[in-house]
Write a protein that binds this DNA or RNA. Structure first.
Length: 205
DNA sequence: TAGGCCATCTGGTCCT
DNA sequence: AGGACCAGATGGCCTA
């Protein structure tokens, strides 16, 4: 018997670029998921393998997923020294996808849940990206982590509220903070210099 | 090399 | 029942 591997990467173009990096894993994974979800939508099945042994989408294919019989999908992600034998990220993702395809009913449900969870996390991450665009950062600053994004946003909102309450001109308020120190009443991790220095880059007019 | 950050998988819980 | 949400576990990548 032989493992079956679907070639989803016929289009080699890399159309997902984030912070200067092309995430081939993400691209391939998205293709896999899109394929599976589209198929489930069209046929009512969660995956082409969900009716394993009867009306398979690929009736001639002999599928072997012996790894899954022994380990959970999560546990097998880096099983049997794969990380040392596969260097190419795209090949690694293909390898994982091949090994993660379930055929038992529970595993099919679990696999579908994993896809939904990934999509949910993607939506959360896109919200973080949006939030990063709204918090003050230095032009040369590296990408904020999620936790730093949240903390900076909290501090930023607190400062904006104080500016509103003060009725002062925003720029002069920030200048004053730079000179005298920002009287931060919140417990935000981001301190005076962190926030006001960033705000000094903002064009207020 | 250790630590931080992240993606992913997973099982439990809650909600519709 | 199935999906959404959540938190823990795990492993990979990157940087100081």
């Amino acid at each position: 018997m032989e493992d079956m591997l679907f070639d989803f990467d016929q289009d080699d173009t890399t159309d997902i670029t984030l912070w200067g990096q092309v995430d081939q894993n993400f691209q391939f994974q998205s293709q896999v998921d899109t394929f599976l979800l589209d198929y489930s939508t069209a046929t009512g099945q969660i995956s082409p393998w969900s009716n394993f042994g009867s009306q398979s989408m690929f009736p001639d294919a002999q599928l072997t997923f012996t790894d899954l019989d022994v380990q959970s999908p999560g546990a097998d992600v880096c099983g049997e020294g794969e990380s040392s034998s596969i260097d190419d990220p795209l090949e690694l993702t293909k390898h994982r996808a091949r090994r993660l395809v379930p055929h038992q009913p529970y595993k099919v449900q679990r696999y579908a849940a994993n896809i939904r969870e990934r999509k949910r996390m993607l939506s959360i991450n896109s919200a973080f990206e949006e939030l990063r665009c709204h918090v003050p950062t230095f032009p040369y600053e590296k990408r904020l982590s999620k936790i730093d994004t949240l903390r900076l946003a909290i501090a930023y909102i607190a400062l904006l509220r104080e500016i509103l309450m003060s009725g002062c001109d925003p720029k002069s308020y920030v200048d004053e903070c730079m000179k005298n120190g920002y009287k931060n009443h919140t417990n935000a991790i981001w301190n005076t210099s962190d926030l006001t220095a960033r705000l000094s880059w903002i064009k207020w007019d």
